[in-house]
Design a protein around this nucleic acid. Structure first.
Lengths: 200, 200, 200, 200
DNA sequence: AATGAATGAGAGTTCATTCAT
DNA sequence: GATGAATGAACTCTCATTCAT
């Protein structure tokens, strides 16, 4: 009986991932998931008490790991450790990706309307913070300050959007990592140089 | 009577822009727009014959200008003119932004489910093309080829997403233009150098 | 001013006749009539207090003449005069047709949903009565009775439906009259003979 | 559960037949059908995916049989077989009537606005064709031609309208058949004689 | 545990009618 | 007298959720 239950749950999970991945949280329909997973609408509600609960069960742990990693630095001064913290986040993302590539893609690309729609914003804000603090630290060493915050926010936003696309369109962990690191290199390293020389 | 009608139309337009801006095309409701603009559901249908027609009236001309500009180069060889074509597109966007900043923000950020949802993709594809052709032209001069296409797609995608955020969050034309040009500089110029030296 | 009023009223009347003639009472829309007659919805309600009232004004007099003619015989024994009463009804119809061919066509063919939708039924019942009494009179002279009522009802119904089609599709009074009389001849005279000989 | 479902479906079907029978396709409302069949609006859409689909399920097979029978002769020369083809159509109608008297009545009398509204016209055209070819064949044997087409159309129209009324008002198959054959006899046989002698 | 029928709120849309101007 | 904007009820249809079986 337990076996049967797990088998049904797996079917629901798999088809729900497909449905959410294709149509997004709001556009997905419980009816559609039930149909495709060869079970009944009512039975889905035996396993998950609502559409939101189902989404939470699929995406929640990925969200929690990601956001949990970020949140732990909320009240912490980073200074010269900022950059390494960020590279650790990439490691974290890669671990999540290697175990749950579909879920992380859905979390980033299809969460509109769900309780996780703020995820990308949290990520962007964190990236912005890391980047800002990195630069501030480097400039402070040279006794200088930098002005613009928004351009860093934009770069961070771009990075996050790109990561979202990468995890959606590429499925090989090695390639995904290479692409992400490439982008960080392009977006951040170059910009630090640029900011350094041009005082944007 | 005339001014009354215009006043109501303005209220509808303003509240519709708010509603679409907050909830996106699909999430917005005619009922909600009617309520907030202090008129009746039926009356909105005096002004616009459907939800789609309302959206079209708000966003259509902005879409047409933007996509029209891009489409004119569909069958045209660009070669060394690629970059200037792109800068002219920025000029076009800035003109649109100066007249219709809210609309262009909605077009980019909230068109999912509408007839304009392909807009960002068109823009990304065009940016990818411009960037690819620019690089190919420069490399061909030196007798070299470049390999990776996806990274350029990601950069282009990032640029477009960033522009979407810029027009959403900033309302001063001068600043918007500066930010966009900054990003192009960061994203494209630097990357060309990078690609040039590292053979990505 | 009076002249102006009449001109508008005429436009409304003409376009309303077209609209009712094309779409039927229920399918016709006040908005459509207003649009085509180059006036406003509200103004139509200055002349007619409702859609029903408008229909009444267009079709009522034709209905009243027709039904009035029929009703006058409600409590009257007809006996041997039955047939001539019916031919007089045809004369009445022809007079109406010659003055108001459009209206009589609408009355017969497009009154569903209106207060006049019973018109054809009244007409059919009257034709049935006339026919029944004519036959009964003829048979009683020979000391016989006839049985079936429904077949006469059907013939009468057919006659009325045919007249409805004739006034809809033919516009020349002479031809209309010839066709109607032809049908009466076919439907009635022959059937009397048939009933006479076969005791249906 | 199964019997419950069937019971509800039956209630919906019965009440839908009543509603369509009383108000016609356009006039009938899903709300009304839901209310009268003691279920909810939404539940009707569990059984039928649209108003049109409901109507199709009720009336479609009857329409298909009838129109299918007629359509098979579209490209076929009939000559002296014309009359027997028509009598076979009557047999077909009687079979349909014996199984689905309500449905055939609705098809003929209440299909305006639905996809089946052309049914009576198809039937009339077929009857007109049969009648015309029968007469032409008979006259050609005697080396004569006949002139009027419209009167045959009217007779055919009358016949079809009468059949529509018969199936609406009579429910005994034997009587329905007798009435239809009686009418064909009256309408066609007599008229052939008439046309024969009088050159209408 | 499983079913899927049933619900009900809310979506977009239409239209006769009213009423302030 | 004329306007047409405004109303509101009714329409078809969808969907997450509940519940009797």
């Amino acid at each position: 009986m337990q076996y049967l239950k797990d088998e049904v749950r797996n079917r629901i999970v798999n088809e729900a991932l497909k449905e959410f991945g294709e149509k997004g949280y709001s556009g997905a329909s419980i009816r559609g998931i039930a149909g495709k997973s060869n079970t009944s609408i009512g039975n889905i509600y035996k396993y998950y008490k609502s559409k939101e609960d189902l989404y939470e069960n699929l995406i929640g742990s990925v969200y929690d790991r990601l956001v949990g990693y970020i949140k732990q630095f909320d009240e912490v001064e980073l200074n010269e450790k900022a950059q390494s913290v960020f590279y650790k986040l990439v490691e974290e993302i890669m671990e999540i990706f290697n175990e749950n590539s579909t879920e992380i893609s859905i979390l980033f690309n299809q969460s509109k309307g769900s309780k996780y729609e703020n995820c990308k914003r949290i990520f962007v804000n964190f990236a912005t913070r890391i980047f800002t603090e990195t630069i501030q630290y480097q400039l402070s060493v040279k006794g200088r300050r930098f002005k613009d915050n928004f351009i860093i926010y934009l770069i961070s936003y771009s990075l996050v959007e790109s990561i979202a696309i990468i995890v959606k369109e590429r499925h090989d962990g090695v390639e995904v990592k290479r692409l992400i690191l490439n982008l960080i290199d392009i977006f951040y390293t170059d910009i630090i140089n640029k900011l350094d020389s041009e005082d944007i």
